[in-house]
Protein backbone atom coordinates (compact mmCIF):
# COMPACT_ATOMS: atom_id res chain seq x y z
CA UNK A 1 0.00 0.00 0.00
CA UNK A 2 1.71 3.12 -1.18
CA UNK A 3 1.17 6.10 1.03
CA UNK A 4 0.34 9.37 -0.61
CA UNK A 5 2.80 12.22 -0.57
CA UNK A 6 3.29 13.73 2.89
CA UNK A 7 1.04 16.70 3.20
CA UNK A 8 1.90 20.16 4.36
CA UNK A 9 1.20 20.43 8.06
CA UNK A 10 -1.23 23.29 7.53
CA UNK A 11 -3.18 21.38 4.91
CA UNK A 12 -3.59 18.24 6.95
CA UNK A 13 -7.25 17.43 7.14
CA UNK A 14 -8.88 17.11 10.54
CA UNK A 15 -10.84 13.89 10.68
CA UNK A 16 -13.31 12.32 13.13
CA UNK A 17 -13.83 8.54 13.07
CA UNK A 18 -17.27 7.19 13.87
CA UNK A 19 -17.47 3.42 14.17
CA UNK A 20 -18.81 1.23 16.92
CA UNK A 21 -15.84 -1.15 16.72
CA UNK A 22 -12.77 0.08 18.53
CA UNK A 23 -10.65 -2.34 16.51
CA UNK A 24 -11.85 -0.85 13.25
CA UNK A 25 -11.20 2.68 14.47
CA UNK A 26 -7.71 1.71 15.56
CA UNK A 27 -7.10 0.05 12.20
CA UNK A 28 -8.31 3.01 10.15
CA UNK A 29 -6.42 5.44 12.38
CA UNK A 30 -3.15 3.62 11.89
CA UNK A 31 -3.70 3.61 8.14
CA UNK A 32 -4.46 7.26 7.67
CA UNK A 33 -2.81 8.76 10.77
CA UNK A 34 0.33 9.73 8.81
CA UNK A 35 -1.58 11.85 6.34
CA UNK A 36 -4.43 13.34 8.36
CA UNK A 37 -5.09 14.41 11.96
CA UNK A 38 -7.61 12.20 13.69
CA UNK A 39 -9.07 14.73 16.13
CA UNK A 40 -11.85 12.62 17.58
CA UNK A 41 -13.55 9.24 17.71
CA UNK A 42 -17.01 8.06 18.64
CA UNK A 43 -18.77 4.73 18.81
CA UNK A 44 -22.44 5.70 18.85
CA UNK A 45 -24.82 8.30 17.46
CA UNK A 46 -24.93 10.63 20.47
CA UNK A 47 -21.21 10.48 21.08
CA UNK A 48 -20.57 11.16 17.40
CA UNK A 49 -22.75 14.26 17.35
CA UNK A 50 -21.02 15.59 20.49
CA UNK A 51 -17.51 14.98 19.19
CA UNK A 52 -18.26 16.43 15.76
CA UNK A 53 -19.87 19.54 17.21
CA UNK A 54 -16.96 20.01 19.62
CA UNK A 55 -14.16 19.53 17.09
CA UNK A 56 -15.77 20.66 13.80
CA UNK A 57 -13.55 18.45 11.64
CA UNK A 58 -13.02 18.76 7.89
CA UNK A 59 -14.23 15.23 7.28
CA UNK A 60 -16.18 12.65 9.28
CA UNK A 61 -15.60 9.02 8.38
CA UNK A 62 -18.98 7.59 9.20
CA UNK A 63 -19.92 3.96 9.65
CA UNK A 64 -23.31 3.20 8.12
CA UNK A 65 -24.41 1.01 11.03
CA UNK A 66 -24.25 2.44 14.53
CA UNK A 67 -25.90 1.70 17.85
CA UNK A 68 -28.58 4.27 18.60
CA UNK A 69 -29.68 5.10 15.09
CA UNK A 70 -27.19 4.51 12.23
CA UNK A 71 -25.30 6.98 10.03
CA UNK A 72 -28.18 9.13 8.81
CA UNK A 73 -29.06 9.99 12.44
CA UNK A 74 -25.56 11.38 12.99
CA UNK A 75 -25.77 13.54 9.89
CA UNK A 76 -29.21 14.81 10.87
CA UNK A 77 -28.02 15.62 14.40
CA UNK A 78 -24.97 17.54 13.19
CA UNK A 79 -27.05 19.41 10.62
CA UNK A 80 -29.54 20.33 13.34
CA UNK A 81 -26.69 21.80 15.38
CA UNK A 82 -25.73 23.83 12.27
CA UNK A 83 -22.16 22.55 12.30
CA UNK A 84 -20.51 22.57 8.87
CA UNK A 85 -18.56 19.44 8.06
CA UNK A 86 -18.36 16.79 5.37
CA UNK A 87 -19.35 13.16 5.73
CA UNK A 88 -17.78 10.22 3.94
CA UNK A 89 -19.57 6.92 4.50
CA UNK A 90 -17.25 4.03 5.28
CA UNK A 91 -18.78 0.62 5.64
CA UNK A 92 -18.50 -3.09 5.18
CA UNK A 93 -22.14 -3.04 4.28
CA UNK A 94 -23.11 -3.86 0.75
CA UNK A 95 -26.83 -3.45 1.35
CA UNK A 96 -27.83 -0.85 -1.20
CA UNK A 97 -30.57 0.77 0.82
CA UNK A 98 -28.25 1.45 3.76
CA UNK A 99 -25.72 3.11 1.50
CA UNK A 100 -28.35 5.11 -0.39
CA UNK A 101 -29.90 6.19 2.93
CA UNK A 102 -26.67 7.65 4.24
CA UNK A 103 -26.00 9.41 0.93
CA UNK A 104 -29.49 10.83 0.87
CA UNK A 105 -28.98 12.04 4.43
CA UNK A 106 -26.08 14.13 3.13
CA UNK A 107 -22.86 12.08 2.92
CA UNK A 108 -20.60 13.14 0.05
CA UNK A 109 -19.44 9.66 -0.86
CA UNK A 110 -19.19 6.01 0.01
CA UNK A 111 -16.18 3.73 0.22
CA UNK A 112 -15.84 0.22 1.59
CA UNK A 113 -13.57 -0.64 4.50
CA UNK A 114 -11.55 -2.87 2.21
CA UNK A 115 -10.28 0.23 0.38
CA UNK A 116 -6.50 0.69 0.16
CA UNK A 117 -5.02 3.26 2.55
CA UNK A 118 -3.80 5.51 -0.22
CA UNK A 119 -7.23 5.53 -1.84
CA UNK A 120 -8.91 6.28 1.47
CA UNK A 121 -6.62 9.24 2.06
CA UNK A 122 -7.28 10.40 -1.48
CA UNK A 123 -11.03 10.09 -0.90
CA UNK A 124 -10.79 12.13 2.32
CA UNK A 125 -8.90 14.88 0.52
CA UNK A 126 -11.42 14.93 -2.29
CA UNK A 127 -14.58 15.12 -0.14
CA UNK A 128 -12.89 17.82 1.94
CA UNK A 129 -12.42 19.77 -1.29
CA UNK A 130 -16.12 19.41 -2.05
CA UNK A 131 -15.99 16.55 -4.52
CA UNK A 132 -18.24 13.51 -4.53
CA UNK A 133 -16.52 10.18 -4.01
CA UNK A 134 -17.96 7.21 -5.87
CA UNK A 135 -16.62 3.74 -5.29
CA UNK A 136 -17.45 1.29 -8.11
CA UNK A 137 -20.10 -0.20 -5.87
CA UNK A 138 -21.82 3.13 -5.24
CA UNK A 139 -21.75 3.88 -8.97
CA UNK A 140 -23.44 0.52 -9.55
CA UNK A 141 -26.10 1.32 -6.94
CA UNK A 142 -26.74 4.64 -8.64
CA UNK A 143 -27.15 3.07 -12.07
CA UNK A 144 -29.53 0.54 -10.55
CA UNK A 145 -31.50 3.25 -8.78
CA UNK A 146 -31.94 5.33 -11.92
CA UNK A 147 -32.55 2.40 -14.24
CA UNK A 148 -35.91 1.82 -15.85
CA UNK A 149 -38.35 4.30 -17.24
CA UNK A 150 -41.08 6.21 -15.47
CA UNK A 151 -44.34 7.60 -16.80
CA UNK A 152 -43.36 10.98 -18.22
CA UNK A 153 -45.79 12.93 -16.08
CA UNK A 154 -44.04 11.68 -12.95
CA UNK A 155 -40.58 12.61 -14.06
CA UNK A 156 -38.75 15.72 -13.04
CA UNK A 157 -35.95 15.64 -15.64
CA UNK A 158 -33.82 17.92 -13.49
CA UNK A 159 -33.70 15.35 -10.70
CA UNK A 160 -35.12 12.02 -11.77
CA UNK A 161 -33.01 11.21 -14.82
CA UNK A 162 -29.29 10.93 -15.40
CA UNK A 163 -27.98 12.61 -18.53
CA UNK A 164 -26.20 10.42 -21.06
CA UNK A 165 -22.89 11.89 -19.99
CA UNK A 166 -23.60 11.22 -16.32
CA UNK A 167 -24.49 7.63 -17.16
CA UNK A 168 -21.25 7.26 -19.07
CA UNK A 169 -19.28 8.59 -16.12
CA UNK A 170 -21.09 6.28 -13.69
CA UNK A 171 -20.53 3.26 -15.94
CA UNK A 172 -16.81 3.94 -16.13
CA UNK A 173 -16.60 4.45 -12.37
CA UNK A 174 -18.47 1.17 -11.87
CA UNK A 175 -15.92 -0.48 -14.17
CA UNK A 176 -13.20 0.58 -11.76
CA UNK A 177 -11.90 3.69 -13.55
CA UNK A 178 -10.36 6.48 -11.49
CA UNK A 179 -11.57 10.03 -12.21
CA UNK A 180 -8.54 10.85 -14.30
CA UNK A 181 -8.99 7.68 -16.34
CA UNK A 182 -12.64 8.58 -16.89
CA UNK A 183 -11.54 12.02 -18.05
CA UNK A 184 -9.03 10.55 -20.48
CA UNK A 185 -11.49 8.00 -21.82
CA UNK A 186 -14.23 10.56 -22.43
CA UNK A 187 -11.80 13.27 -23.56
CA UNK A 188 -12.99 15.70 -20.93
CA UNK A 189 -11.20 17.41 -18.05
CA UNK A 190 -11.04 15.93 -14.57
CA UNK A 191 -12.91 18.99 -13.36
CA UNK A 192 -15.79 18.11 -15.71
CA UNK A 193 -15.82 14.54 -14.41
CA UNK A 194 -16.05 15.92 -10.89
CA UNK A 195 -18.91 18.19 -11.93
CA UNK A 196 -20.81 15.24 -13.36
CA UNK A 197 -20.19 13.19 -10.22
CA UNK A 198 -21.41 16.00 -7.95
CA UNK A 199 -24.48 16.42 -10.10
CA UNK A 200 -25.29 12.70 -9.85
CA UNK A 201 -24.82 12.84 -6.08
CA UNK A 202 -27.22 15.77 -5.90
CA UNK A 203 -29.82 13.90 -7.92
CA UNK A 204 -29.41 10.85 -5.71
CA UNK A 205 -29.99 13.04 -2.66
CA UNK A 206 -32.89 15.10 -3.96
CA UNK A 207 -34.80 12.91 -6.38
CA UNK A 208 -38.16 11.73 -5.20
CA UNK A 209 -38.21 9.24 -7.99
CA UNK A 210 -40.51 6.61 -6.63
CA UNK A 211 -38.32 4.01 -8.25
CA UNK A 212 -35.60 4.95 -5.83
CA UNK A 213 -37.65 4.23 -2.77
CA UNK A 214 -39.38 1.19 -4.18
CA UNK A 215 -36.09 -0.22 -5.23
CA UNK A 216 -34.70 0.42 -1.79
CA UNK A 217 -37.65 -1.23 -0.13
CA UNK A 218 -37.38 -4.29 -2.32
CA UNK A 219 -33.82 -4.83 -1.25
CA UNK A 220 -34.43 -4.46 2.42
CA UNK A 221 -32.29 -6.81 4.42
CA UNK A 222 -34.85 -7.34 7.10
Amino acid sequence: MQSSAPQDQRNRKRVVLVDDHALVRAGVKSEIGDAVDVVGEADDVEGAIDVICATVPDVVLLDVHLPGGNGPAVIAGVRAAEVQTTFLALSVSDAAEDVIAVIRAGARGYVTKAIASSELIDAITRVAAGDAVFSPRLAGFVLDAFAGSLPTDQVDPELDLLTNREQEVMRLLARGYAYKEVAKRLSISIKTVETHASSVLRKLQLSNRHQLSRWAADRRLI
Partner: peptide, 22 residues
Protein backbone atom coordinates in the same frame (compact mmCIF):
# COMPACT_ATOMS: atom_id res chain seq x y z
CA UNK B 1 -33.10 -15.01 11.05
CA UNK B 2 -33.27 -11.25 10.53
CA UNK B 3 -32.09 -10.61 14.03
CA UNK B 4 -29.21 -13.01 13.63
CA UNK B 5 -28.31 -11.47 10.29
CA UNK B 6 -28.15 -8.03 11.86
CA UNK B 7 -25.96 -9.34 14.64
CA UNK B 8 -23.59 -11.18 12.29
CA UNK B 9 -23.36 -8.11 10.13
CA UNK B 10 -22.32 -5.91 13.02
CA UNK B 11 -19.85 -8.29 14.56
CA UNK B 12 -18.42 -11.07 12.45
CA UNK B 13 -18.40 -9.22 9.13
CA UNK B 14 -16.51 -6.30 10.67
CA UNK B 15 -13.93 -8.63 12.17
CA UNK B 16 -13.42 -10.51 8.91
CA UNK B 17 -12.84 -7.25 7.06
CA UNK B 18 -10.37 -6.16 9.67
CA UNK B 19 -8.47 -9.45 9.49
CA UNK B 20 -8.10 -9.02 5.74
CA UNK B 21 -6.73 -5.54 6.13
CA UNK B 22 -4.39 -6.19 9.01
Amino acid sequence: RSEMAAHLHDSVLQTLTLIQKR
